[in-house]
Design a binder for these strands. Sequence first.
DNA 1: TTGCTCCTCACGTCACGTGAGGTGGC
DNA 2: TTGCTCCTCACGTCACGTGAGGTGGC
Lengths: 263, 263
Amino acid sequence: MNDLTIGQLAAYVGVTTRAVRHYHDRGLLDEPVRDASGYRRYDVQAVLKLIRIKVLADAGVPLARVEELLDADPAALADAVAEIDAIVRGQIAELEDRRRRLADLAGGDEDVFLPGDLAAFLAELRGAGVAEHIVQAEREGWILLLARYPDRALDWLARKRADLADPDFRALYRGYDHAAGWDPDDPRVEELATAIVRYLERRYADEGDAASFVIDDPTAIALQASYFSEEGSPAIERVAELVRAKAPRALAQTIHLVPPGER
Amino acid sequence: MNDLTIGQLAAYVGVTTRAVRHYHDRGLLDEPVRDASGYRRYDVQAVLKLIRIKVLADAGVPLARVEELLDADPAALADAVAEIDAIVRGQIAELEDRRRRLADLAGGDEDVFLPGDLAAFLAELRGAGVAEHIVQAEREGWILLLARYPDRALDWLARKRADLADPDFRALYRGYDHAAGWDPDDPRVEELATAIVRYLERRYADEGDAASFVIDDPTAIALQASYFSEEGSPAIERVAELVRAKAPRALAQTIHLVPPGER
DNA sequence: TTGCTCCTCACGTCACGTGAGGTGGC
DNA sequence: TTGCTCCTCACGTCACGTGAGGTGGC
């Protein structure tokens, strides 16, 4: 009579009776003797074995692996446990990362799900006084670029961040933004275009390897052009037109001021 | 052309294409437009929504709940995230507990899976110089008792630990152990029995409520008797016989020196 | 042209959960 | 006698995984 029913066994170890029966089906736990009523009757060895099964299964070890480990010698078990423990440690680190992401999600700060380089770039744009709607346009454009060109977009982004470190570029970038509200015949439109061309000439004057940093895929160019061109602003279109006209042809091609269709 | 295929979308966010299609089937993510070949084409909004889905799903939120939360207002989202975060924190704590249990499993120290009280009792037995095979017998017996009588076995165990704090009891316990090797006619057998009865009389003399602490279930008694009786030792059986004969009947019944069948 | 990606079913997986319908123990 | 536990099928669940058989893009 010194034995346990399936319910007592399961409750003591902290599993369901269904789980115990499942372990019988899987061959992890031997079927015990039955009493006169056909009830399973468990001894203390079954308790100890079920505890081992639960410890391993709780740690995420697949039952097929648990089965092997139950019969393993202590050294092999220790090796396996070290391996499992490393996985569990990884899971803890992952969960802690998820806590951070959840907090960001609740805080509405979606930049945190972006690559660090892009988040840094967006912060730099804001720091340079770029209007928020432009920052958002950059954000969306770069997300698409990073997704489409995982191998190269980070290089392109690094290039753009380097440009942004130049005070002249920052001034032009802000000017481009303000120009959206101007009349296309405003004299500042031509001034801006001239300044842009001067900057470009200086920037790319001695860089023979510039092309390797430059976005060279037609679709990528279209992407960048579309989010940067402030659709619907005649002044911006006029600036772009003037820049294309004033820039030497070779330079314009290198840095893709020429839309894809015209190359 | 500023859009992504399902593979680009999935790779960027870190899920499989199958998962994306699954989210479409579940209604979590709207089916995007198709291109001329029937391929799905995703925009940046789909990227951002899929990131939100992944953050929540990774945190263990069921997809049905994820669906609600995607449309929730910021306050409701913050509440839900706080709740989810509490669950994730619980998971981290659980994983850390599992690491400890895994380490114990690898170290071969199975006592750690037992209730703290039992582990402490076993340590006390060892500290009192009790032979290891007796400690193991106690261990197995108490595991079964704890499993069969979850409500009361901890009280019984507390009682036994209190007994063990008495130096006289410890001496008797050790004597009982040594007696296993004696001849049943050894004069020390009768001495031990007399000492046991004297101890019992003193121990239970003034305790009117002793019975409430005592194991009162026939099966439980049989359990304790069977693991403690050193089956096969004539000297031990003789000691038990003498104790039963010498103890006043009322005392013998209270503390269950009388086997169940004879009550 | 070859390999890669995409498409739609539709069954499989993992570790049990959940009735369905019935019997034994207290 | 009533409620509780036990028994054996056997289908259901959850979030996809994994071919099967076929087509489009570079």
